[in-house]
């Protein structure tokens, strides 16, 4: 299989790229929702992310990618307990997937042929400590959505069925993409995504031509193209790692907390999740920029992506909520 299109070679789409990077720096931000038309590079960016992310340490062969041997669930039979580096998992959740595939289920194979009651882990196990990507998330069936909501909130997948009683860690960054024309997302699911960005095709001919040129080069001279962008991808990876360290040392002054709270109150965002995400996103953004202290500027820059999908929304309101956030930001921070 061909290596995916390099992340750094994606032209424009800065919001989308930034939001993905922020979740890489602080996975607890809780996922990204990318809404936009077809052919705007949504899936390209997510697939490129897999190659970009720094590797994780995990027990070899562990179905839930446990970090330490003692975290390996007891239903998993492993031959070795050696810990080694592995790429951060980026798992695709295809549309129309069955519940069994998502949560895992009784291993029918083992049950029928060997008469054993074994657990076959599902996609949630595979995505633990990594990313779970849902393309066309707005077309996902409701019962799968319910299931994901439950797991995303608790960080644990509980399987109680067919005589099995299994629980395992399932902490993942949920990345969803979709085309708003094909349907809307339930507010409950919207709220679970930490950040939300809207993408469109580049408006100017120049960047469109640039996209075409790069894509063409990728298709025609693959090896050279990958080599050309390898260094820039590596630079981003380095910055993510530095950012993760910087995040721990970053100060959060009280006035920034006040800023965040004022902003959320002014916008009427539901619940405290908005405040927390905005704060986390601003901190991750500051760490990414390698700034030493959190300031109003950081909050201002990430406010739209952290809050636009949380506004108490009249389902019939057609004004873009992104502009609404920006307007309120201008007023509050004037």
């Amino acid at each position: 299989m061909k290596a995916p299109f390099p992340f750094s070679a994606i032209v424009g789409q800065d919001d989308m790229k930034l939001s993905l990077i922020l979740t890489a720096i602080d996975p607890s931000i809780g996922g990204v929702l990318v809404f936009g038309d077809r052919g705007t590079g949504k899936s390209t960016a997510v697939r490129a992310l897999a190659a970009l992310l720094p590797p994780i340490l995990r027990v070899e062969g562990c179905p839930v990618n446990a970090e330490r041997p003692e975290d390996v669930p007891d239903w998993a039979v492993l031959e070795t307990k050696t810990v080694s580096e592995a790429p951060t998992p980026v798992v695709d959740l295809p549309l129309g997937v069955t519940e069994d595939r998502v949560t895992g289920a009784l291993d029918i194979e083992a049950a029928l042929t060997r008469g054993e009651k074994a657990f076959q882990p599902g996609l949630l196990a595979k995505a633990n400590r990594g990313y779970l990507y849902i393309d066309e998330v707005n077309l996902l069936e409701d019962h799968i959505v319910d299931l994901l909501l439950d797991v995303a909130q608790s960080g644990e997948n509980v399987v109680e069925r067919e005589g099995l009683s299994i629980r395992h860690a399932a902490r993942f960054v949920l990345v969803g993409s979709g085309n708003p024309e094909e349907g809307e997302l339930r507010p409950q699911l919207l709220d679970r995504f930490g950040l939300s960005v809207e993408v469109g095709s580049p408006p100017d001919i120049e960047s469109r031509v640039e996209v075409l040129k790069r894509r063409d080069a990728y298709d025609r001279d693959h090896a050279a193209f990958m080599l050309r962008w390898q260094a820039e991808d590596a630079a981003i990876r380095e910055r993510i790692l530095t950012g993760r360290k910087a995040l721990k040392k970053l100060d959060t002054p009280d006035e920034t907390l006040t800023d965040v709270a004022t902003l959320c109150v002014a916008l009427g965002a539901d619940g405290l999740r908005g405040e927390l995400t905005l704060l986390k996103a601003a901190r991750a953004y500051a760490a990414w920029r390698d700034d030493t202290a959190l300031t109003r500027k950081h909050v201002r820059d990430v406010a739209a992506m952290a809050l636009r999908h949380r506004l108490r929304r009249d389902p019939l309101d057609e004004a873009g909520s992104g502009t609404r956030v920006e307007r309120v930001v201008e007023e509050v921070f004037a």
Binding site: M1, K2, S43, R47, D92, P94, L95, G96, V97, D135, E136, L139
Partner: peptide, 15 residues
């Protein structure tokens, strides 16, 4: 159905 379309699309995207 949309599910199959998405799966085939994913298959095409993986090149």
């Amino acid at each position: 159905p949309p599910g199959l379309a998405a799966r085939l699309a994913g298959c095409m995207d993986r090149e």
